[in-house]
Every structure is written in structure tokens, then in C-alpha cells.
Design a protein around this nucleic acid. Structure first.
Lengths: 232, 232
DNA sequence: ACAAAAGTGTTAAGAATACACCCATGC
DNA sequence: GCATGGGTGTATTCTTAACACTTTTGT
């Protein structure tokens, strides 16, 4: 890993960036902050910042997110490290990007953060981003899509109790493809990781629908057997 | 990504490490180097080293590998970044690990590197490793296994021309599970990415077998259509 | 009664699995 | 002629994909 006597004094700085996904009004959203200082002053960027000496990388991400928004993270995963020499115009910065998911329960509403530094954006209507953050985000979306197919992270984007139609819309929105309602239902229910609640709710139009809850315990139990979550 | 006026002078150093896989005598092997200096002096470790200021991360990996062994890389992929504060006893080192594959054509033979600094080890018979390299390697093997199922990287571990039985043994060795010969053949051939050569070879016993070659052009052409390589 | 969304079952096609014998060569 | 590894086909099961009408509520 190194030679003994010469430790190069690198000018490389290390940051973490977070791609935080949320889901609101049938849209996949991402949390961006407005930069206060140069470079890219006033532009939108992914939340993140320098890693402090004693903290782990995950702690750095959680700290930055909590400092900026007080968000409670549901799911955190290392995405990729970005290290092109000129990605920051000031000096060399290598950034380790993480992907996070926030339940919409805990999300500040888009309207309520209006004109502040942190805002949710539809992934379909993004502003120009600082640095190589567009590239990071693109990679994150690709990863999210593929994870959605073989890990039950869809539930992490919904409130604790949700309608089956919410789940279906979430899948077809994020995967950007239509789904057959009957086949989707059959598949998801066949895993046996949803609990149907007795409550039925109606949004005023149409037939009232059952609420469902993701059964985490059951899912974890199944993982020890020969069980694979997968949406074809 | 940062506040404007205060750039923390981090004491964090950045390295890259490479998990280089090879395949020899029906064994998955990994390339290790013996450390010359403390810490972990004399112990085996993954090849790697500090990232130099102007080079990209990939360049750093390729440089380190080439400096140490002159190996020609076939496949290189970022694996994961390891940043636990105490993973290096001297000071904080964050390492970006890459996974590489070398064709056995280009590999120095195990016997010929005897008693030097770089050696191939069977992944089944590993020495104790420096730092958290055992953890890195474990992650790499997991990734290799899963990639083997949905990307044609198996061919990158074999010589240019190979027997079907070599390919089958490679799969069952790395995945550590038996395969049905007929079903495996049927599946692989159905992709149409192998070229059967007219030559037949015999190793002295048994019926002579056809040599095959991976058809990269064909594979790349197919990728633009609705084609997915997958071994179930 | 009608508009709106929820809920439900069957059939056909394709993919995965299980399984055993003959073939070509060297000795 | 026998030992060794190479090569081949079919039947069954499971999974996916395609597809449309009925139910429950609010207005």
C-alpha cells in the first residue's frame, strides 16, 4: 500500500456527496442544495462536504445530511467514487458518492422549503448542476432502477402504510414502463412480505382500497431461506 | 461541496488497491504482493499505492500494477471504497479498490515468480492479509461471482482459444456449484457469441474437443439489441 | 346512472430443470 | 477392449406474459 519512508503529501481532498431520493406526487425526486460560494456559486448541487478526520464515510454523509436538513435516512448505500483530476476547478477533490432514500413521511414538503437552500426536484426537471454532479446523479438513477427490481427498496420510498396502487405507480414511474396490474399484484403478493391492514381508504373517487404495510421481519426471515425478491 | 473560505487541511491520504483475478489449473487465483516495510512488513497484501496528484484513479491502478508486474489488464472495474478511520495504523488512508482480470496467457506462472514479491494465490488457500485486505478481497469475490452470471467476463479469464469444458469448469469452480453440461452448453451457445474453430485438440485422453473463441464484435453488436447475457 | 379507481383468473408461450447414453480417441 | 473425456435430445415443471370484466364507492 505504500513504501516505508516516503509518504507523499497529497494535495488531494476527500469529500462525500449524497444522492437523496424521495418520492412525491408520483414523481421521483432528488434533494439538491444551492451553493453559497464559488465555484458554482448559486448553482444547485448534491448535498455533501469534506470528510472530517475521525469520522467514517457513512458518518460523514449522515452528518452532512443532518446538518443541512435534519432528514432521517432509511437506506444508505455507497454508489461510486469520482476522482477525475479536474472535476473541481480549485484543487483535486475525490468524492465518494452515496445513495440515500427518505420516506416521504419525513420529507419537508417542496412548498415549505421554497426559497431556502435545500429543495426537492423532480428527476425529470433538473436544473444545471455543479461539478460532475449530473453524472453522479445519472449513475444513481441507473442504480436505483436496477435495485428496485431485486431489492424491496420501493417500500422505503413510500409511507409506512400505502395502497397497492401507490406501489404499482411507484414502480412504473421509476422504471418508466407500464406494468400489468394483475401480474404485478400477483408477483408482489407471492413474496408474502406485505401485510394487508383491515382499514380501507378512499380518496373520494372510486372504490376504497386496502392499506398495506411492508413486513420487514418476514422479509428478513425469508432472506435466510432460498428467497429472492425480483420483479421481472 | 465545501464552504468557501475554509478548506480543511485533511490528513487523509488516498490510495488505490487492486484485486487482480487470474485463473489457472482450474483455480481462481488472486495476485498478492509481499510488503517490504512496516506496517505489516513481510505480510501479503493487495497490490496498490498512493494516488499521484495528476493521474486519474484508473491510471493510478494501472500504473501500480504495471510497475509491479508488467501485467496487461483485460477488465478493470471500480469495486468499492474503504474508509474506516483506523484501517491503517499510521494515519487515515481511504482506499478505492478496483477489480481486474488477467488472461492466463499473460500471467507469469506461479512457479516462475517463486520467492519474489508478487505471487498468485488460490483464493481457497490465502495467507493472512495486511490491513482490511481480506475484507476487500471478499467483496471482490462476491462481485466477481455475480458478474459472472450476467456479463461474459468468464472469457476474460481464459486464453483466447479454449475448450467448452474449460468454460464449464471455470463457471462451476468460481460459482462453486455443479452445472449440468447439456443445459450449460445450450444456454451459452444460444447467445451466439462463440465461434467454433475447426481445430480439434486432444489432451491425450478422451475424445478430442473443439476450440472456441469469444466473438467480441458479435457480443457488442447484440448489446445494442434486446440481448441479455445471463446464466441462471 | 355514471364516473372513477380497485379488484380479480385463465390461457398460452417460453424458460429452466432433470436426466442418460453414444462417440472419438489413446493406450 | 477399456478408460477417458466430449458431445447430444426430450419431457416436465415453472415462470412470464397477455388479456377484460366486475365491484365498490361518491356525486
Amino acid at each position: 500500500m505504500s513504501e516505508a519512508f516516503q509518504y507523499p503529501q497529497q494535495g488531494i481532498r476527500l469529500t462525500v456527496d449524497a444522492v437523496v431520493f424521495g418520492y412525491h406526487s408520483d414523481r421521483l425526486q432528488v434533494l439538491l442544495i444551492r451553493r453559497k460560494y464559488a465555484p458554482f456559486e448559486g448553482q444547485w448541487a448534491l448535498p455533501g462536504g469534506f470528510v472530517a478526520e475521525p469520522e467514517s464515510l457513512e458518518q460523514a454523509v449522515e452528518r452532512e445530511l443532518s446538518e443541512e436538513t435534519g432528514l432521517k435516512i432509511n437506506y444508505l448505500e455507497q454508489l461510486f467514487s469520482f476522482g477525475e483530476p479536474r472535476r473541481d476547478p480549485r484543487f483535486r477533490v475525490v468524492s465518494i458518492a452515496y445513495m440515500a432514500i427518505i420516506r416521504s413521511d419525513n420529507m419537508p414538503l417542496q412548498a415549505s422549503t421554497d426559497a431556502t437552500d435545500a429543495q426537492w426536484f423532480d428527476t425529470q426537471e433538473l436544473p444545471p448542476l455543479a461539478f460532475d454532479h449530473a453524472q453522479i446523479l445519472e449513475k444513481a438513477i441507473t442504480r436505483l432502477r436496477s435495485k428496485l427490481r431485486y431489492q424491496p427498496i420501493g417500500f422505503d420510498l413510500l409511507p409506512e402504510k400505502f395502497l397497492f396502487s401507490d406501489l404499482e405507480r411507484l414502480y412504473s414511474t421509476i422504471l418508466d414502463q407500464p406494468l400489468d396490474r394483475r401480474n404485478f399484484r400477483k408477483k408482489i403478493l407471492s413474496f408474502g412480505i406485505l401485510e394487508e391492514l383491515s382499514t380501507k381508504v378512499s380518496d373520494g373517487r372510486g372504490r376504497p382500497a386496502s392499506l398495506y404495510r411492508f413486513d420487514l421481519d418476514r422479509y428478513q426471515a425469508l432472506q435466510h431461506e432460498n428467497f429472492y425478491f425480483e420483479i421481472p
